[in-house]
Design a protein around this nucleic acid. Structure first.
Lengths: 202, 202
DNA sequence: CAGTTCCGATACTGTTTGGTATCGTATCTA
DNA sequence: TAGATACGATACCAAACAGTATCGGAACTG
């Protein structure tokens, strides 16, 4: 939770520039993607954000606080759960959700995942933040698409949706993080047509 | 590659104690699992291994060298590719390969994966070492089982085995690393019966 | 205009840590 | 027995870095 939750006091003096909050968190995530937690320093973050360290420490009490906030901030840019595809068939919905990335976007996503992965061994708080901010939104999105399909009678009502909704997010994460390859249209098609749809239609 | 590849010179003096090599690498992996690369220090490794830092630096030129060697050392204890299950059916083979873990083993595996994940943002050398040592052996094992099944006519000869052999290793890694839950018998059954076999039998 | 608060740049402190050096002891060979 | 090499404990050096302090200027309110 960001530290600026208190009601604003009687406000003399210069106003806090809240646009800096996002710039600092974005800079944190960029550097995390580039060099992992080991290489992330407050000087680097400050330089990248174009802010002073005093400005950062005025908002966050520690480096760890900043990193956790930055990861939680990611949630808002993963997937819009209010605006999921709704094309009438599960296949089209799934293909519409996994939008293809350019080579540059893929490379960036790959580094981003690796940076986030470096947090997983830093304790439960970090791991929970990564899961909640990055993984859960995608699983939730897939679950919604599959529940709609079950409602249409398109898939077996007793399919284990709890497991199946995790397949694509898991394969996406695995492919980018471990295999360091793009989660491209070709792979998406092979996953949807070759694994998911057969599994759902039994 | 360990640094002791040179032919032994005329050997006066005390012999090198090669049992220390494995102890040091094991200590490295234990600490990596516990605190990730950020928290791994040479003093901790030396203390855990019961060795001196001079002893470590006599074998490896740097901390990075040691970590990479230790990860490569893991390959030997992942899965024995010469001794895979061969029960006559793919289902039994798959269930036999994914041997169930105790709660303690699961917890240990989870930490181990998180520690390895912390290496993925440290550059290509580290990422390649993790992939080669941990991920590839399991994918190879699954590929072998599936190729046997195709040979028996048990699955479609045109199935995308390159992708399908990655599913279980990916889900195992994802489950432990990201969801921080055990890859237990229940989950294995649900993956094999609910996803893999249906996907293979189309 | 005075007072307050925020800003970025910079200096600073204390601690950590990779890697090296030293030393006494142990273990070897000739 | 002399000489060579490995060992673990410890001290040490240099560099890095989290976090704090200071300062001049900017942006605000009363």
């Amino acid at each position: 939770m960001a530290t600026n939750v208190t009601a604003e006091p009687a406000a003399l003096g210069r106003k806090r520039d809240h646009s800096l909050d996002a710039k600092i968190m974005d800079a944190t995530l960029e550097i995390l993607a580039e060099v992992g937690l080991t290489g992330l320093t407050m000087d680097l973050v400050a330089a990248r954000a174009g802010a002073g360290k005093a400005t950062i420490y005025r908002r966050w009490t520690s480096k760890n606080d900043l990193v956790i906030d930055a990861v939680e901030h990611l949630k808002r840019i993963q997937v819009d759960l209010e605006d999921l595809p709704d094309t009438g068939t599960l296949r089209s919905d799934l293909l519409g959700l996994g939008k293809p990335l350019s080579l540059e976007e893929t490379e960036q996503r790959l580094k981003s995942m690796a940076g986030l992965a470096s947090l997983l061994s830093q304790g439960q708080t970090f791991a929970d933040a990564v899961n909640a901010a990055v993984i859960q939104p995608w699983a939730e999105a897939h679950l919604t698409l599959m529940q709609r399909a079950a409602g249409r009678g398109e898939i077996a009502a007793d399919a284990d949706l709890g497991t199946l909704c995790q397949i694509l997010p898991a394969m996406a994460a695995y492919r980018s993080l471990v295999q360091r390859q793009p989660f491209n249209q070709e792979f998406l098609l092979s996953m949807v047509d070759g694994v998911l749809l057969p599994a759902l239609r039994r």
